[in-house]
């Protein structure tokens, strides 16, 4: 198996005007290609902070982060943008779709930034939308569809560039439990077709979709176990 990700003694300290918040206090783990890992922990335990660093949206205060063998600390702004575009597909709790763009245009965005010519984009976008179970919603806007559908659009957008890894930060957090399970089934399917997935949640039920669960509390790993 190929090692996709390695983090070593990752720390993140937020320096506020008076107090110092130690969001991450030394986290280390590795992730192999094709894994489906859940990161579970209570609210405020540092899960989102960790995901942002893994997603190349933020940088650690201390520690090492290698993504597909590359030391992320050594990348410049443009190379980071390229990593976010090609290697990572991020799914947010709040969907983070562009409100004025159609679903099609939202999913098209990573392809545009990847420089895929417009003639080739249409097929790729439609394929991605269909793969998450969305049909006949291509030209609706986010405010014209349900929360579950919005998250499907967001997942389609995350996987449209064939990233090395899909990151999902509480993807079911804004959904009712039935819709949440529907969304988790999509991740399950993506895992079965070979995608590497890291999922963050504070719900045990959701975490158990993963094949390995990393428990974190107060910025430290409590337990790292493989689920049967």
């Amino acid at each position: 198996m190929n090692r996709i990700m390695r983090i070593e003694q990752l720390k993140k300290i937020y320096q506020l005007s008076k107090v110092k918040v130690e969001a991450l206090r030394g986290i280390s783990f590795t992730i192999e290609e094709g894994e489906f890992v859940s990161i579970m922990g209570p609210s405020g335990s540092g899960k989102s902070t960790l995901m942002h660093i893994i997603g190349c949206l933020d940088y650690p205060t201390e520690g090492k982060y290698y993504l597909t063998g590359q030391d992320v600390a050594k990348l410049n702004d443009n190379q980071l943008a390229l990593f976010r575009n090609k290697k990572i597909g991020f799914v947010f709790q709040q969907f983070n779709l562009l409100p004025r763009a159609t679903n099609f245009n939202n999913v098209e965005l990573p392809l545009i930034y990847a420089g895929v010519p417009s003639g080739k984009r249409k097929d790729i976008v439609l394929k991605a939308l269909h793969s998450v179970g969305l049909k006949n919603r291509e030209y609706h806007r986010p405010n014209e569809i349900s929360g579950g559908e919005r998250q499907r659009v967001a997942i389609a957008r995350a996987l449209v560039n064939n990233p090395s890894i899909i990151l999902a930060d509480e993807p079911t957090g804004n959904l009712d439990s039935k819709t949440g399970h529907d969304i988790m089934k999509i991740f399950q399917k993506l895992h079965q077709s070979g995608n590497t997935i890291i999922l963050v949640t504070h719900e045990r039920e959701i975490a158990t979709y993963g094949k390995r669960i990393i428990y974190i509390r107060d910025g430290l790993i409590e337990k790292d176990e493989v689920v049967a």
Partner: peptide, 16 residues
Amino acid sequence: TREIGIRKALGAKNRN
């Protein structure tokens, strides 16, 4: 600002 954040998360370069 949020739109800018989304675009950057999807791989927009500063120059984009």
